[in-house]
């Protein structure tokens, strides 16, 4: 009886989660006129891959895709590199302003992104980084940094200090201890931190909208928004693009799930 109940609950939740995805899929397969249909029709007179073809051939979708990969990838590498090193220092060394730094990093997470938009815009304008990827790299990496530092620090705190001391006695310098021992065994935390940074940058719209004004520099969220016109939104193209946009993130999740599971359970059991 318990099993049947569990099964029913699981099925209900699955339907609840999958329905929006299936709906987007049907919209992407229909013409814009058929968008308002209520049924989940995958096959029929009005269905086909024309939206996907138009997306690739008639829009700048591939350019936006490339831009998004570049922006998200670079800010992830920047952010994770800085978080990994900063968190190590905060985890392993004692210095005067340590508590203050950790607290202020936490404090930055209390402000909503909208509140930071104006200062970001002013800073980037002064640095002449409006309408450039460099501006986005800096903002994405720095906004993700506090959370990433806390996450990496929490992981480093669970690593036994003996490992580092053993490496020192084996002949490592402190820098070698970090990159030969600590970094390789921190791969679960690095993967989670990287995934978090990547996803945040991949789906970010508001900051991209104030930094990027040239359509050739648009990232995917900006490109998708451009399908929305004042009189008619091209929902078919929008849905097709939305599906393709989600593919890299889903693929990353599948590829990194091994690390993800071990990373999420880090510190929960001894040894």
């Amino acid at each position: 009886m318990k099993k049947i109940f569990a099964l029913v609950v699981i099925i209900l939740f699955s339907v609840f989660s999958i329905y929006p995805v299936l709906y987007v899929l049907t919209v992407s397969l229909r013409t814009d006129q058929a968008f308002q249909a209520n049924q989940l029709n995958f096959f029929g007179d009005n269905t086909g891959f024309q939206n996907f073809t138009r997306l690739i051939t008639e829009t700048d979708f591939l350019i936006w895709f490339r831009n998004s990969v570049l922006v998200s990838g670079t800010s992830t590498i920047l952010g994770v590199t800085m978080a990994a090193t900063a968190a190590y220092a905060l985890s392993r060394y004692s210095f005067k302003a340590k508590r203050w730094i950790l607290f202020s990093l936490l404090t930055t997470q209390m402000f909503p992104a909208t509140m930071l938009m104006l200062p970001f815009f002013i800073i980037l304008a002064k640095l002449q980084l409006i309408n450039s990827f460099m501006g986005l790299f800096i903002i994405y990496a720095s906004t993700a940094l506090p959370f990433c530092i806390w996450q990496m620090k929490a992981y480093y705190d669970t690593l036994p200090i003996d490992l580092e001391e053993a490496a020192l006695l084996d002949g490592c310098s402190k820098w070698q201890v970090f990159y030969k021992i600590i970094l390789p065994i921190s791969s679960p935390a690095l993967v989670i931190t990287g995934l978090f940074s990547f996803m945040a940058a991949w789906s970010e719209y508001m900051i991209a909208a104030i930094v990027l004004q040239d359509p050739a520099l648009y990232t995917l969220p900006l490109g998708l928004k451009s399908f929305q016109a004042s009189l008619a939104t091209q929902w078919g193209l929008y849905a097709a693009a939305a599906l393709i946009v989600s593919i890299p993130v889903v693929l990353l999740f599948f590829m990194l799930s091994r690390y993800l599971i071990s990373g999420l359970t880090v510190g929960s059991v001894k040894g």
Binding site: P160, D162, L163, E165, L168, L169, S173
Partner: peptide, 20 residues
Amino acid sequence: VQPQDRNLAMVFQSYALYPH
């Protein structure tokens, strides 16, 4: 003198083997 330059080895209670 740094630990790595003292020409000694140490065996730890936790073994401290490099897990990777």
